[in-house]
């Protein structure tokens, strides 16, 4: 599998949420540049080119990470902490996916360096709108340093 074109790393353990999110991104024409991993451990493997991702080059830079918080093995919070404390990855924008805007974890995520958050709405219209806003955000977001 070729990972060099991957611009969005999508970390989500729920298959339903993943399906709906990927469909929304497809509508926005972004799904072909997205890679979905099912938990935090796999996300770290992807980032550090380990396990099944050994063949991936660490220099293939991502443009954004969509990160769910509640996941088995390694939680989204731990992934975020790792990403934001590593000089290699800390410039990659991280968008948190959360079930509720009242989630106290949001505050903690911002402290750790998260760039934004999206509430996963039950209301699909809003959900798609949020994803569209995200792709807009992603387009205008600063380019990673090595692209300059």
């Amino acid at each position: 599998m070729n990972f060099s074109d991957i611009e969005i790393l999508f970390v989500e353990d729920s298959m339903d949420d993943a399906t709906l999110t990927i469909r929304a991104l497809k509508k926005g024409g972004l799904a072909n540049k997205l890679h979905h991993v099912k938990d935090g451990a796999e996300a770290l493997d992807f980032l550090y080119c380990k396990g099944v991702y050994t063949g991936r080059s660490i220099n293939d830079h991502l443009k954004v990470i969509l990160l769910d918080l509640k996941m088995p093995k390694v939680s989204g919070m731990e992934v975020l902490e790792k990403v934001k404390s590593d000089p290699l990855f800390k410039s990659i924008p991280v968008v948190i996916l959360t079930s509720s805007k009242e989630d106290p974890d949001i505050k903690r995520c911002y402290e750790l360096g998260a760039n934004s958050y999206i509430v996963k709405p039950v209301d699909s219209d809003n959900f798609f709108q949020a994803i569209k806003d995200l792709s807009f955000y992603w387009m205008i977001s600063n380019q990673p340093p090595h692209h300059l």
Binding site: S14, D16, D17, T19, L20, R23, K70, S99, S100, E102, D103, P104, K120, P121, V122, D123, S124, D125, F127
Partner: peptide, 21 residues
Amino acid sequence: SYSVSHDLRAPLRAIGGYATI
């Protein structure tokens, strides 16, 4: 409460999402 918030919302999101599809 937060577990309720997260865990009840996930299936609801699925129901609503698939209905929309």
